[in-house]
Design a protein around this nucleic acid. Structure first.
Lengths: 176, 176
DNA sequence: GGCAGATGATTAACATGTTAAGTGAAATCG
DNA sequence: CGATTTCACTTAACATGTTAATCATCTGCC
């Protein structure tokens, strides 16, 4: 963000050929690094998921549901890391496809409880082998030790940022 | 993905209270780690961008444009890491807001050349101080050395995955 | 020169991200 | 109790992600 003269000047003419700095700084920012890394990973999985008619997020939800008997929507949003509105739409779709089952809690009519259906489980079982093979290939290519270390560092980063937010709020920001 | 009996059984009854395994494995997968880390980072920046009427992607584009005199759309998509269709829509919007300028290359009428406008530069300069302060805070909290190491590891991961794709294609997958 | 295939960019269609608003039920407090 | 507030979830509205299709131009080849 440093310089800024020397650029507005020649904004109009003789621009096609000028292409100069390789914008190193920008493409090496932390958000971009994380975005590219994640995209590189997901690019491996998407074709297989697509072959089974699943998006990445639908898979995340079904995958999460295999590890519990049943779960409330809000809790599911937390573990699958989806925002409420996205989850609402996806659950509507998955329910229509009969991959999940939903009913309302008896004790609290506001809450909905979701679980995976037999059909959903069957789908998971069809996709899982390929997914696990890909994951294993990634692990072997990158190195299991290194992968664990990377995930550790990501976890630390995440936690230090949460701490940052808290620190920013405890001052006087009660406006609105 | 291992077990699967013992769960379909009690799918129908007595489910609200059962919530068992903390689904460790799932939430610790590499894609989820990357997603959460990136989200934690972006959560810091979004409010400031929003105050200036910019989304994350719009910011990425303007930011990239400050480092060149002019750039073709395809090349801009590459450096800002956006897909063509997204970029098309955003450029249409940014042009309508007069934050960028676009014209077609004389030598090749298919190509469009984009550059940031004076108004766009002014906006960037208004947002940059806050963004840089946040970035500095993140760096200081996490540690500059550690941050560099993390980005290094992300880069290695990215490259090893690209290599993996190439390896998967050189067999006989010419089927559409 | 003209045509088949490649290329740059946009549009289309659907799914999700993101914030705000809405809806109904539960908890709280006077 | 009854009004108010909070809570769980959904809808709404707009922006982007993702793949396929379209459109115009360009290139290579005859």
């Amino acid at each position: 963000m440093a310089r800024k003269k020397s650029q507005t000047e020649s904004n109009t003419a003789a621009a096609e050929t000028t292409r100069r700095a390789p914008m190193r700084d920008f493409s090496r920012s932390l958000p971009m690094s994380l975005l590219r890394a994640r995209e590189a990973v997901m690019r491996q999985f998407r074709p297989s998921l697509r072959n089974h008619g699943l998006t990445e997020q639908q898979w995340r939800i079904l995958r999460a549901l295999t590890t519990v008997d049943a779960i409330e929507v809000t809790e599911l949003a937390r573990v699958a890391f989806l925002l409420g509105p996205s989850l609402s739409r996806i659950l509507r779709d998955l329910e229509a496809r009969q991959l999940i089952e939903r009913r309302t809690a008896k004790a609290d009519l506001r809450r909905a409880v979701v679980s995976i259906s037999a059909k959903g489980l069957k789908l998971i079982e069809a996709v899982a082998p390929t997914s696990e093979a890909i994951y294993a290939e990634i692990t072997s290519r990158y190195g299991a030790r290194k992968l664990a270390e990377l995930q550790d560092m990501l976890g630390v980063l995440e936690r230090s940022l949460v701490a940052m937010e808290v620190a920013g709020e405890e001052s006087g920001e009660i406006e609105e």
